[in-house]
Design a protein around this nucleic acid. Structure first.
Lengths: 216, 216
DNA sequence: TGTACATCAGTGAACGCGCGTTCACTGATGTAC
DNA sequence: TGTACATCAGTGAACGCGCGTTCACTGATGTAC
């Protein structure tokens, strides 16, 4: 016992690299603290504690907690945008089942970010709400265009298409929030949620077929 | 100028009445503070300030902020339950348009409570989330029963009916949250939201007709 | 109805605590020659 | 490659502040006789 240990006196890497790592530690630590609380209730000192630095060092990375919040939103939004872009490119998303499979995989591998977005979606910080709403509106527009190119939907009124796209996105969003509340991936609860969501999307698509017949 | 004024030295009513009034002032003041913040970020001292009493007097009414939070949830839930009960009794709710008209009226006359529920729905307080989820599940069950009694739906599988009821409730919930973000009642934004929601509900109902044909 | 006592909503002083922020500092890393 | 100086991420003491909570109190209201 009591043998020698190899110890880094200081962390490896250049100064810039170490700074970036601390910044990431602050952001990751904050997302971790947000697991079961709102952003507004987390203190600067808690955040620095979670990252293993002294409170005053916080200001080397962010000018305020609000600033850190904005950085987290940007980070989460970047992730969300990337996911949506990938999903639109992927040809297999043409079926509801495949879209859901992709959604589950993404949500499970970025739970912290999704939880942050879901939590702050209706939370106190106006800027977050606005950013999220904008992102969602953009995605609904893109989905509307996708729909307008599908066989049988070319003749649809754009307003009606957008209404349907909005309903599909809402349904997927509801499923996402539901997923976050299910801790155990692959559980019976999860399978039931997915089955229900899949049927709901199919119901909407069927409705669109009937809509065409009654409104055109 | 500087004439006499008639002033109540103490508030009117019995001691119990005045206590109840202070309790209400604490709850109303809190809902007011929650207009653009989360419950977790509101302090006991702010609440008593809003009600015009000294901080220590808070404990004559609630044992803690958490206790006040529970009282607010119960209050809001009571309101919600009453609204849903009334809506189910009202025969005019058989059409989507009428249901939406009732929803708008209720949301507009209880905005504080609805905002509180929407804000805390995914907020940090587990108990609130659970209470809301239970209430919602109960309402979906009731709506499922309503649907099963509608002409043409008697032969439906109960699971399918519940799936459809869930989708309708989600859609109404999304509309509710949307309404809360529109400050100006009767505005073009509000009319557009209602038109879209109405079409979405109709789309779902049409989908149910098509579903029967493809699954039975 | 009048009196004596009990109740209790609200007061005000005081406490210890965690907070955000300032400041001068340290010492390892980076750069110029 | 070696030296002298600049940079700067992180430190630690200190501050004033709002917080939740305790406690002994006040004085109007309620009750018993």
């Amino acid at each position: 016992m009591d043998g020698h240990k190899l110890v880094y006196v200081t962390e490896p890497g250049t100064r810039a690299e170490r700074k970036e790592r601390t910044r990431q530690a602050l952001m990751d630590g904050t997302l971790d603290l947000l697991r079961d609380r709102s952003f507004a209730s987390v203190s600067l000192r808690e955040v620095t504690r979670s990252a293993g630095i002294v409170p005053t060092a916080f200001y080397r990375h962010f000018s305020s907690m609000e600033d850190l919040g904005v950085a987290l939103v940007e980070d989460s939004m970047r992730m969300l945008r990337q996911m949506l872009r990938d999903a639109r490119k992927d040809p297999s998303t043409k079926t509801a089942t495949e879209s859901l499979r992709i959604l589950v995989r993404q949500v499970r591998s970025h739970e912290d970010h999704f939880r942050f977005l879901a939590r702050e979606r209706y939370g106190g910080v106006t800027e977050v709400r606005r950013a999220f709403a904008t992102e969602l509106r953009m995605f609904v527009s893109e989905l509307t265009i996708d729909l307008s190119r599908m066989p049988g939907l070319e003749a649809w009124d754009i307003v009606d298409l957008e209404m349907a796209a909005d309903l599909i996105v809402s349904t997927m969003l509801t499923a996402t929030v539901g997923l976050l509340e299910i801790d155990r991936p692959g559980s019976e609860n999860e399978r039931e949620l997915l089955r229900r969501t899949e049927h709901q999307v199919r119901l909407i698509v069927l409705g669109m077929g009937a809509w065409r017949r009654t409104h055109n």
